[in-house]
Design a binder for these strands. Structure first.
Length: 475
RNA sequence: GCUCCGAUGGUGUAGUCCGGCCAAUCAUAUUGCCCUCUCACGGCAAUGACCUGGGUUCGAAUCCCAGUCGGAGCACCA
């Protein structure tokens, strides 16, 4: 099987579907798959030189290594050779009709005057195309199909055209005569011995077009499956390479790994494993209808993968500082993981005030007993803006009525900027978070999973304040 | 306009080829309960779907026809 990307940028989440499915099939059926960059349009779909490696990198993130990698722009001579053979068989002709003129003839099922040229003439003109003697739009090579075919989309389609703009790859920059996808891909699929093709419904007619070439050469066409488009919920940004690219260009996104971008680089930075994406993608199947991928299913898969090994921490978003009263212990010691006491505890020095999330502060208007349990620490009653230690034991929680909340010490907490799909959230995390290694995953209790990205020193005011940057993964 | 394709709960999917074992599977989501010093993990339960109308048949999610809705192609893009 093959994955045939157009190297015009790093992959968005939807691109993961192809490698996810064919990679999984490869494992299941002891198959083979390659990546073939179909980079045969140096102009309107101009390849981005960095995208080749970016895509292979994304593939690696998903957990796959292709058995082979090709670039169509390395294989022009092969396509030329096959075109020559086709011409000799009378299966193609050079045509200098304008696009509009041909389109009109085609739609009325009429052949153009170039169709009946001698193959010697065609060959000569095609060699001239290869030599770059025409400029863009002057001459094309058409495959002779059936000019009266009931589906107008299949009538005498273009196989090669002239492009004046040089290909960005130096190795291919001298070529001016470029094959169209249907010719290039059709020939390659046979030569590379692809047995099964999966492609989008936008290419539904490709197999039928290419069948004409296969018939001329006497080849058997691979099995084809067409699938619909994938959409993601949860994102404001449209899943389209060009849209994302524009947003990055004009500064609305920080880059391909901005958490607000629906890209693989972004998911990776948020600490979501490639495997979680692959599972969600294979679960979509291969139906021809358009499908909506719920990000929650990616998250559920990821949670399954990381929950057990991810330690717990406290992180208070937009906290309010509240003084403590009474005689609470000087230190709290909640476990790193509730299901793994052997991993030990986090020792959190408390000080004389804490920060709580606004939503967790007991409402003075209500008639409750206004007690809350600071998780891993103890029970307090909220009164007159002060949390007074009650010395109740945990039975107070078990009996009900006392909520357990997360908190951080006001003095020794670590400022955190957490980047999410919806934008940045600021707050404070417990002291130990400042010492975590970048790339480590944490679960901020009652908030969600996040990946520690880096520890920054704010240089603006020069006071050396540290800020930890985390990327939010999911609940 | 011409030509293709498709339609199962909020989402995805199994079942459709070869009609009965389907008052429809599994996952996710949502809700509730249990567990729990997390709104995590785990356990239990509930909610919720065969596009519509005809036809064939003892019997239709499954076969046929029509309609509706949705998608795609008719590029010198991929």
């Amino acid at each position: 099987m093959r994955c045939a990307p157009n190297p015009n940028g790093p992959w968005h989440v939807g691109h993961a579907r192809m490698p996810a499915v064919i990679g999984t099939y490869r494992e299941r059926y002891d198959g083979w798959f390659c990546v073939r960059f179909d980079d045969t349009d140096p102009e309107t779909k101009r390849p981005d030189l960095e995208a080749y490696d970016a895509i292979l990198d994304d593939l690696d993130y998903l957990g796959f290594e292709p058995d082979a990698t090709y670039k169509a722009s390395d294989r022009l001579e092969t396509y030329y050779d096959h075109a020559r053979d086709l011409i000799e068989m009378g299966g193609a002709y050079t045509c200098s009709c304008s696009g509009e003129a041909f389109s009109e003839l085609k739609n009325s099922g009429e052949a153009c005057p170039h169709r009946d040229k001698e193959s010697e003439t065609v060959l000569e003109e095609f060699e001239a195309m290869i030599d770059g003697e025409y400029s863009s739009g002057e001459m094309v090579l058409r495959v002779k199909t059936d000019i009266e075919h009931k589906n107008p989309a299949l009538r005498d389609w273009v196989a090669f055209r002239m492009i004046d703009t040089p290909h960005p790859r130096e190795e291919a920059s001298e070529y001016r005569c470029w094959p169209m996808l249907d010719f290039q891909s059709g020939v390659d699929d046979h030569l590379i011995e692809v047995t099964h093709i999966i492609r989008g419904i936008d290419l539904q007619d490709s197999a039928k077009r290419q069948q004409f070439v296969y018939d001329y050469f006497g080849w058997d066409y691979p099995e084809v499956i067409h699938w619909g488009h994938v959409q993601l919920d949860d994102y404001d940004v449209k899943m389209s390479t060009s849209t994302i690219s524009e947003l990055i260009e004009n500064g609305e996104l920080d880059g391909w790994d901005d958490p607000r971008a629906p890209t693989l680089k972004s998911l990776r930075r948020r600490g979501i494993r490639g495997e979680a994406i692959v599972e969600a993608m294979t679960g979509l199947g291969t139906s021809t209808t358009d499908v909506d991928l719920a990000m929650s299913s990616v998250y559920a898969n990821n949670r399954d993968l990381i929950d057990d090994e991810t330690d717990r921490r406290f992180f208070v978003r937009d906290g309010n500082q509240i003084p403590l009263a009474g005689e609470p212990p000087a230190e709290a010691a909640p476990p790193l993981h509730p299901n793994h006491e052997d991993r030990g505890v986090r020792e959190i020095p408390v000080g004389d005030s804490v920060m709580l999330e606004v939503a967790d502060i007991p409402d003075a208007e209500e008639d409750g007993d206004r007690r809350i349990w600071l998780k891993g620490f103890g029970c307090f009653r909220f009164d007159d803006g002060v949390l007074r230690y009650t010395d109740d034991d945990i039975d107070a929680v078990r009996e009900g009525g006392v909520d357990v909340v997360h908190w951080v010490p006001a003095d020794e907490s670590v400022p955190v900027r957490m980047r999410t799909i919806e934008g940045d959230v600021r707050g404070h995390a417990e002291p130990g978070v400042g010492d975590l290694e970048p790339d480590e995953m944490v679960q901020f209790e009652r908030v969600g999973f996040a990946r520690i990205d880096r520890h920054e020193t704010e240089s603006d005011d020069g006071d050396g304040d540290e800020e930890t940057v985390a990327y939010y993964a999911h609940p």
